[in-house]
């Protein structure tokens, strides 16, 4: 077990390292001088040279990479050109919006998908199963950012019940903060719920006829209790796995939804950095997001090993 763990951690470190190298190389090698892009066409050669020096662009690429990496390890992600503040602080500030947003979306999607999937499995091939299937088809097909627009029309512009966008900050109180995040989280949750419903249904269908569920029924448990107490916990494993695998799409969705709702989150930061050509911020945010995805896959991998003894045996 320990040796597998060590091997997985090593592979995690290597992956993270290569991703950082890749991001840096792409940003460094693509045509266009960041300093020139930042300053525009009217800058004098002296200003350009000064900015290049300030950004460290006069150094060779490997030196710049090592300096960046060393900074990342110290928690120093460099200075944002447009905001004039350290990027680490900027990311931390934006995470206070993005993390709650993603968490609420995950909670909503699980709360919708698991009961729906379980019920669909119990009424296999009957009307409810069909409706749940339709829901997941539609959920997977609709873009989260469009759902966001529809929710704004339905709840904000017409009746004015909910804020159409923006974020008051957590200083304005928990309720005000949560209220600003509800619509975006629902928009983000719907596509996730579509995928998860399908997974939950398939998982419950698979374990429903296993011996242990039959035994539970034979002991005199009602159908519902047998399923919820014995089948569903086992079926949750693939649901959690899928949540991990869907993480990339959750992040992509967050970038878009934050832009629809004008939320000052990490996704919006990435977009603003792009439009302002703030290379340092772009680089750090992409690294941060990618690191998060890799870490998530790592956690799912470990969870698998912890849950399924067959995998532990197989990996040795």
């Amino acid at each position: 077990m320990i040796s597998i763990l060590v091997r997985r951690i090593l592979s995690l470190v290597v992956t993270l390292f290569v991703v950082s190298l890749l991001i840096f190389t792409v940003m460094g090698l693509l045509p266009g001088d960041p300093a020139a892009i930042m300053l525009g066409t009217s800058a004098s050669p002296e200003t350009l040279a000064a900015l290049q020096k300030q950004l460290g662009l006069d150094q060779p690429l490997p030196v710049r990479y090592l300096a960046w990496l060393a900074g990342v390890f110290r928690g120093d992600l460099g200075q944002s050109y447009t905001y004039g503040v350290p990027v680490a602080g900027l990311i931390a500030e934006r995470l206070a919006v993005t993390i709650p947003l993603a968490l609420i979306a995950i909670v909503i999607s699980v709360l919708v998908a698991v009961p729906l999937g379980v019920q669909a499995a119990r009424s296999h091939n009957r009307a409810f199963d069909f409706v749940a299937g339709l829901f997941s088809y539609i959920g997977i097909a609709v873009p989260a950012f469009w759902v966001g627009l529809l929710l704004i029309i339905l709840f904000s512009t017409v009746p004015g019940w909910m804020p159409a966008g923006g974020f008051p900050g957590w200083d304005a109180g928990l309720f005000a903060g949560l209220k600003a995040l509800v619509l975006p989280a629902v928009a983000l949750a719907l596509p996730q719920a579509g995928v998860l419903t399908r997974v939950a249904r398939a998982a419950v269908l698979e374990v429903m006829n296993e011996d242990f569920v039959r035994t539970a029924r034979a002991k005199g448990l009602s159908d519902g209790t047998a399923i919820w107490r014995h089948a569903v916990p086992n079926a949750l494993v693939p649901v959690v796995t899928m949540l991990g695998l869907q993480f990339t799409f959750l992040i992509a969705g967050a970038v878009l939804v934050e832009n629809v709702f004008n939320l000052p989150g990490l996704g919006r930061l990435a977009y603003q950095a792009l439009s302002q050509r703030d290379i340092v911020v772009m680089q750090d945010v992409v690294l941060f997001f990618s690191g998060l995805v890799i870490l998530m896959n790592f956690v799912v991998d470990l969870a698998y090993l912890a849950i399924d003894p067959r995998l532990r045996a197989g990996a040795q």
Partner: peptide
């Protein structure tokens, strides 16, 4: 396969942003 893991880690929206920033 490691390469696949690495590519999977960067959502297409973000790689498009990185590319878009330059080209």
């Amino acid at each position: 396969m490691r390469g696949c893991d690495i590519i999977f880690a960067v959502p297409p929206i973000l790689s498009a942003m990185m590319l878009g920033a330059f080209i």
